[in-house]
Simulated assay, not measured.
Amino acid sequence: MRVRGRLTWGRRARAGAALLACVVAPAVVLSPGVAVAGAAAAGAAVAGTPVCQVRDDRLREISGMVATDDGYVVINDGADDEALRRIFFLNQRCAVVRSVAYPSRPRDTEDLAIGRDGTVWVADIGDNDHSRPTIAIWRLAPGAAKPVLHRMTYPDGAHDAEALLLDADGRPLVITKGGSGTVFLYAPTTALRPGATTPMASVGQVTLPRTSTSNPFLFLGRGVVTGAASAPDGRRVVLRSYADAFEYDVPAGDVVTALTSGTARITPLPDEPQGESITYSRDGRSLLTVSESADQPPGTRPTILRYPVAAAADAAAHPTGSAGPVSAGPGAPTSVRPAAEEASGAGARPWALVAGAGTLLALLGLAGVLRSRHTARR
């Protein structure tokens, strides 16, 4: 999220990642297991194919996207400028054809979902400072002039979140951003009502598979969830980090079971500037992404990228809910071993303390960054 007068989380995290790379570089060089895994991942991960470029200057902080029959719907992250705080409809060439304003100021819009009836759900759920007493969902019905606001509360205190899914009944599921590879799922306990605040309940947690996919935030970028999407037929869902997409089969429409007990298929999303959006193509055959940050490098524009959907897992060998190995999609890292296992090879131990110190410094720096980010009040 870009905040006037402050560095973005992405820029600060990239600076921290660069420092961490300097600290732990000797461990990478002298640990054959880690070096080989990193090289294999870099060689196997394939960049997405450009679909179209978003050239509208109002869309420089895209944090949520869904595909429609006519094109795309996108939103910015929380923004200071009123002109940016809108729901934007794009055609298939990424040109803005219309936009819809909110009736009041949103707090921190981070993701989009689309219902089977075409209703657009805007997840106003970002909370970098962990200070919001409520989060919100905006629902824009087909043909409506403005979205309707619904407020929700967590049962266990504030969380930062950037991902939203809908289950088979149209119930919203909020996925926290996490930070260490484990994220939590929350759902409203009753139907949402305008003007009311609906309590949520914790409905499960997800531990992301470990990968070595290259991204601007190093291992920090692989342990957070920045977006989510459901396939048009509802039979698959996907979570994304700054580095990868994790796709799960959905049994009988049960999204919670799919995420908490399923086996992920991995599609690497290598080196996206600050990837916070993901959606399925309308035919369900591709994953589409776009990065929040433009001008990285300077002069570039947000570009929608297409990735082939990972091949389905062998259902007989690893049915949904089994503890079988993670199935890797096209271009996936050849090694997804836990970091501890990678570091256990010969020559790695002399640098274990250095790597551990670098990790601690990075985590402390990330905590400071998250505390320092200001979220505008509604």
Rank of each mutant, 00 (worst) to 15 (best):
V28F: 09
V29R: 13
V29Q: 10
L30D: 09
S31H: 08
S31I: 06
S31E: 09
P32H: 13
P32F: 13
G33C: 11
G33M: 11
G33Y: 12
V34A: 12
A35Q: 11
V36D: 13
V36W: 11
A37H: 00
A39Y: 12
A39Q: 14
A40I: 14
A40M: 15
A40E: 15
A41I: 09
A42I: 12
G43A: 15
G43P: 10
A44Y: 12
A45E: 15
A45Q: 13
A45M: 13
V46N: 15
A47N: 12
A47I: 09
A47Y: 12
A47W: 11
A47Q: 14
G48C: 00
G48R: 02
G48S: 00
T49V: 10
T49K: 13
P50R: 03
V51R: 09
V51F: 08
C52H: 08
C52W: 07
C52K: 09
Q53Y: 05
V54D: 02
R55D: 10
R55W: 06
R55N: 11
D57M: 14
D57Y: 14
R58T: 15
R60I: 10
R60D: 12
I62V: 01
I62K: 06
I62C: 05
I62Q: 02
G64S: 05
G64T: 03
G64R: 01
M65K: 04
V66W: 07
V66S: 04
T68R: 10
T68G: 06
T68Y: 08
D69W: 10
D70L: 08
D70S: 11
D70C: 06
G71T: 09
Y72S: 03
Y72H: 09
V74S: 03
I75R: 04
N76T: 04
N76R: 03
D77L: 00
D77Q: 04
G78E: 00
G78A: 06
G78I: 05
A79L: 02
A79W: 04
A79V: 05
D80C: 09
D80T: 11
D81S: 11
E82Y: 10
L84C: 11
L84W: 00
L84D: 13
R85C: 06
I87P: 00
I87F: 07
F88E: 08
F88R: 05
F88K: 01
F89S: 14
F89N: 11
L90Q: 05
L90H: 06
L90T: 05
Q92G: 15
R93C: 09
R93G: 14
R93D: 15
R93E: 15
C94H: 05
C94T: 07
C94W: 03
A95Q: 14
V96R: 01
V97R: 13
V97F: 02
R98F: 13
S99G: 08
S99V: 08
S99T: 11
V100N: 08
A101Y: 02
A101V: 03
A101T: 04
Y102C: 01
Y102D: 07
Y102Q: 03
Y102I: 04
P103C: 07
P103R: 03
P103Y: 04
P103W: 00
S104G: 14
S104K: 10
R105I: 02
P106W: 01
R107G: 08
T109D: 07
E110T: 07
E110V: 03
D111C: 03
L112H: 04
G115C: 05
R116F: 01
R116N: 07
D117S: 02
G118A: 03
T119S: 04
T119K: 06
T119F: 02
T119N: 01
V120M: 06
V120N: 05
V120A: 05
V122A: 02
V122E: 01
